[in-house]
Simulated assay, not measured.
Amino acid sequence: MKTTNQDCPKNSYKKVGFDLKLKIIDEIHNGRISINHASDKYQVSRTSIYFWIKKYATLDQKKQYMSKKDEIKRLKEKIEELEFVKDFQQDVIADMELLTGVDMAKKSLPETLAKEIEKKKQDRLKRNG
């Protein structure tokens, strides 16, 4: 019995002109298409697309394709900043509620945030006597 040895089909890619390269980069940059989808749609390798992005993309576009570590670091910094802003705003609301006697948080904020502000008010009352 003879077995035939079938090779894996090799992807054949076509040569891509400069204008099409820029079009692909632009579509990816504007979020209309992913790199994987562009590779399938235009029959070009992902490696080629990454190379084009590196070679032809503007500085702003290159920033969009930052490494995962850099992106995680940036997002962690943003989370810290937003948590600081949230705590500050809650402190201000708690102080205003103590001064005015009006429960603004319960009326206009989600329940979890209103509970946090209520806790801050209780802590302030304990500290101030």
Rank of each mutant, 00 (worst) to 15 (best):
M1N: 08
K2S: 15
K2C: 11
K2D: 14
T3M: 12
T4P: 08
T4H: 12
N5Q: 12
Q6A: 08
D7C: 01
D7Q: 13
C8S: 07
C8K: 10
K10L: 14
K10I: 14
K10N: 12
Y13T: 05
K15A: 09
K15H: 07
V16H: 02
G17T: 03
F18A: 07
L20K: 06
L20E: 01
K21Q: 09
K23G: 01
K23R: 10
I24V: 12
I25C: 15
E27T: 06
I28Y: 00
I28T: 00
I28L: 03
H29F: 08
H29N: 15
N30R: 13
G31L: 05
S34Y: 06
S34P: 01
S34V: 00
S34K: 04
A38E: 02
S39M: 01
S39Q: 00
S39R: 00
S39G: 01
K41G: 01
K41P: 04
V44A: 04
S45G: 07
R46C: 05
R46Q: 10
T47F: 06
T47M: 09
T47P: 03
Y50W: 06
Y50E: 07
Y50T: 02
F51R: 13
K54F: 02
K55E: 03
Y56N: 00
Y56P: 04
A57Q: 00
D60L: 09
D60Y: 04
D60W: 05
D60R: 10
Q61F: 04
Q61K: 02
K62R: 02
Q64S: 00
Y65H: 12
M66D: 06
M66F: 04
K68M: 03
K68R: 01
D70Y: 03
E71R: 06
E71L: 04
I72W: 03
R74T: 07
R74Q: 13
L75Y: 04
K76L: 05
I79L: 08
I79A: 01
E80L: 07
E80P: 06
E81I: 05
L82S: 07
L82Q: 07
F84P: 06
F84K: 11
F84G: 02
V85T: 00
V85R: 14
K86E: 08
K86R: 12
D87H: 07
F88Q: 10
Q89T: 11
Q90F: 08
D91T: 05
D91N: 08
V92L: 09
A94L: 04
A94E: 05
D95L: 14
M96N: 11
M96A: 13
L98P: 10
L98W: 08
L98E: 15
L98G: 13
T100E: 14
G101R: 06
V102P: 09
V102E: 14
V102A: 14
D103L: 09
M104T: 12
A105H: 07
K106S: 15
S108H: 15
S108P: 00
S108K: 15
L109V: 01
L109Y: 11
P110N: 14
P110F: 05
E111Y: 09
T112Y: 14
L113H: 13
A114S: 09
A114W: 04
A114G: 02
K115A: 10
E116S: 15
E116W: 00
E118R: 12
E118A: 13
E118I: 02
K119E: 15
K120Q: 13
K120I: 13
K120M: 14
K120S: 11
Q122M: 11
Q122D: 11
Q122F: 09
Q122L: 11
D123Q: 11
D123L: 11
K126P: 01
R127C: 09
R127E: 15
N128A: 13
G129W: 03
